[in-house]
Computed example of a mutant assay.
Amino acid sequence: MGQQESVIKLVELIKHQDAQALIEFYQQSNSNDNIAQLKYLYQQAQSDQALYLFFQDLVSTLFEKKPIPEPLIAGINDIDKLTFFTPALSACEGFDQQNEQGNTVLHALLGRLHPAPPPFNYIRSLMLFERNESLAKALASKNNQQLMPMECYLAFNPCFDTLPAHELTAALALLEAQVKQQASQASTLMLICKHLKKSADFSKLNGNNHRILLLGAAFECANEEVLTLLN
């Protein structure tokens, strides 16, 4: 059965409201089919807000029966996808699940090569109010490059524009939560600075930039020390 056929079959089972058959079919489908099915459910939720919660709850049920498909981890890389999949990831404690590159959903979200700041405040809210143990663990998970999610943000996110105050506060809180579990290594700061020097907007990284402040907080060093490494 191809991916398109697996989605058509899934739709039929949803229409027949046969929950048990739907779960069994999803469990028996391979990883690529599961990704196609989940992509369909996400797209349907986005296109019809009246059914958003229905599809969101359905995905939560599916994740409880079968873990998130590994290749999908890197695909949950913006606020819309994260918001949709949050209840499912919470239900299966899936935030700290890693893919072949050792990345969690947080690595994918925070290290995204997109000129926009990540949703720090949303992630912090999840940690404060949802009691997500796997989310806290994910913050301190190292990928194959030996980088934690916030370190991926510091190294790779190309947006150096000033963060709104609430987002900066949330970013600092996430760094604090990470450091409590696992402190950043000094050698990692040098690696991050090497990556930042390759950025097209490197000239924006002066002493007043919030990225310098966050690097200082992450590695518990003075801003001058960070600037020296960048120069």
Rank of each mutant, 00 (worst) to 15 (best):
Q4K: 15
V7M: 10
I8W: 13
K9V: 10
K9E: 14
L10S: 01
I14D: 13
K15P: 03
H16N: 14
Q17S: 15
D18G: 04
L22I: 09
I23M: 07
E24M: 09
Q27V: 15
S29I: 11
N34T: 04
N34K: 15
L38E: 00
Y40A: 06
L41N: 00
Q43P: 05
Q44W: 01
Q46L: 13
D48N: 15
D48W: 05
Q49M: 15
Q49C: 05
L51S: 13
L53F: 13
F55S: 02
F55T: 04
F55K: 02
F55A: 03
D57Q: 14
T61D: 15
L62P: 03
F63A: 09
K65D: 12
K65R: 15
I68H: 01
L72R: 04
I73R: 11
D80L: 03
L89T: 01
S90Y: 09
Q97V: 13
N99L: 07
N99K: 03
E100I: 07
N103A: 08
T104P: 10
H107S: 08
H107Q: 11
A108Q: 00
A108C: 11
L109N: 05
L109C: 01
P115M: 01
A116Y: 00
P117W: 06
P119L: 07
N121F: 12
Y122S: 05
Y122F: 14
L126V: 02
L128A: 14
L135K: 04
A138G: 13
L139S: 10
L139T: 06
S141D: 07
Q145H: 14
L147W: 12
Y153F: 15
Y153L: 08
N157I: 04
P158M: 07
C159Y: 04
D161L: 12
D161E: 10
T162L: 10
P164I: 05
H166V: 12
E167F: 06
E167H: 04
L168V: 04
A171F: 10
L175T: 09
Q178E: 15
Q181K: 03
Q182A: 11
A183E: 14
T188H: 08
H195W: 00
H195E: 13
K198L: 14
S203C: 02
N208A: 13
N209E: 05
N209S: 08
H210K: 10
I212K: 06
L213S: 07
